[in-house]
Simulated assay, not measured.
Amino acid sequence: MIGTAIPAGLLPRVGVRALAGVAVLLAAMLGGVVLGETPLPWNTVWAALANNLWDARYLVDPIDQGIIWFYRVPRTLVAAACGAGLALAGVVLQALVRNALADPYLLGVSAGASTGAVAVTIMGVGAGAIGISGGAFLGAALAFGLVSLLARAAGGGPAQMVLAGIAGSQLFNALTSFFIAKSANAEQARGIIFWLLGNLSGVRWPDVTLAAPVAIAGFLACLWHMRALDAFSFGADAASALGIAVRRVQIVLIGAVTLMTATMVSLVGSIGFVGLVIPHAARFLVGPRHGRLIPTAALIGAIFLIAADVVSRMLIPGQVVPIGVVTALVGAPGFALILIRGKVRG
């Protein structure tokens, strides 16, 4: 039997790093609950959490109890799931497309999901047969299919895929604007536009039961195909030569990316740059091997979006800034750094 020797001390180091990462995530989640428009004392947060988790019956103001359990806890959990899901989507797309600039936002998947969600919300597409998440999924799948066909017609290279994604994004963004202008009243239009910029204000516990399972399923699907993703980094032909069932793996992974992106967009709107910048940050820390890259990107994405949500609530006193604005303020310089360092492969 041929085995691979594990260097002495490697497993303990990996375990320590994993525990450190989980500890940082838990600290970020606790910060997401404590910090906000109205900062709450740590002891109040602990008491409220204990009351709901273990029926501890500490004396907590009912208003504070409601803010913590029914508003901030689900908001933080959904932010973590969305950050992890979008980061994973970026990891997968960058491997499949072999382009450092590939992410759901740039390839039009987010724009297609937004169009599908808006079509269901204000135009009644589907006549109630599909929900907002279903409409977002169909829109995301349609957008990715259209972008793929356009890129193949233009030559099929990584650069053509990104250019086709930009064209697809513009098309679906225009369709979204048309639907809003045609069917939404002034109040609906204002709410939808704010939602499209990224907004977790309306997130509640039912959204957690949708976002968390999708993020976990997407994570497991990516982890299951980590060796295939390593092979795809060298091209589909190389993956096929190594015995990878290219078409099947592509369908599974693209389906996972589409599902994660559509679910997150349907819940919190279109949030850019998470799927673009976070995978590069993870590669900088752990290298390109997907066995390490996938959990690291998911962890960093979750922490990043929780932190961005906290900033969005505290940046302007008395007003919540769309979270997409905060991610863009961080992601745009990161995007520029990727370009300057010459990481783009065309």
Rank of each mutant, 00 (worst) to 15 (best):
I6H: 11
I6A: 13
L10P: 01
R13W: 11
V14S: 02
V16T: 07
G21Y: 04
V24E: 03
L25E: 00
M29I: 05
G32F: 10
G32Y: 10
V33G: 13
V33M: 13
L35K: 05
L35W: 04
P39V: 13
P39E: 10
P41H: 04
T44N: 05
V45K: 08
A48H: 13
N52T: 06
L53V: 11
W54P: 03
V60N: 02
I63P: 00
F70D: 14
P74Q: 08
L77Y: 13
A79R: 03
A79S: 15
A79H: 11
A81N: 11
A89S: 07
A102D: 10
D103E: 14
L107Q: 05
S110I: 15
S114W: 08
V118A: 13
V118E: 05
M123W: 11
M123C: 12
S133L: 11
S133E: 12
G134P: 07
A140G: 11
S148C: 11
L149D: 12
A151S: 07
A153S: 02
G155D: 11
Q160K: 06
L163A: 06
G165W: 05
A167I: 14
L171F: 14
F172I: 08
L175M: 10
S177H: 08
S177K: 05
A184K: 02
N185Y: 09
R190Y: 14
R204H: 09
P206F: 07
D207C: 04
D207V: 03
P213A: 15
V214W: 13
G218V: 04
F219M: 12
F219C: 14
A221I: 12
C222F: 06
L223K: 09
L223A: 15
L229R: 04
F232W: 02
F232K: 02
F234A: 06
G235A: 09
A238I: 01
G243L: 02
I244Y: 00
R247E: 13
Q250T: 10
Q250K: 15
A256M: 12
A256V: 11
L259G: 00
M264L: 11
S266T: 08
L267R: 01
G269M: 10
G272C: 03
V277P: 03
R283M: 06
F284W: 06
L285N: 08
V286F: 03
R289V: 14
H290L: 01
T296Q: 05
L299D: 07
L305I: 11
I306Q: 02
I316V: 15
P317L: 00
G318K: 04
Q319S: 14
Q319P: 02
V320Y: 00
V320W: 00
P322M: 09
P322F: 04
I323R: 00
I323G: 03
V325C: 10
V325D: 07
G331I: 00
I338G: 04
L339N: 13
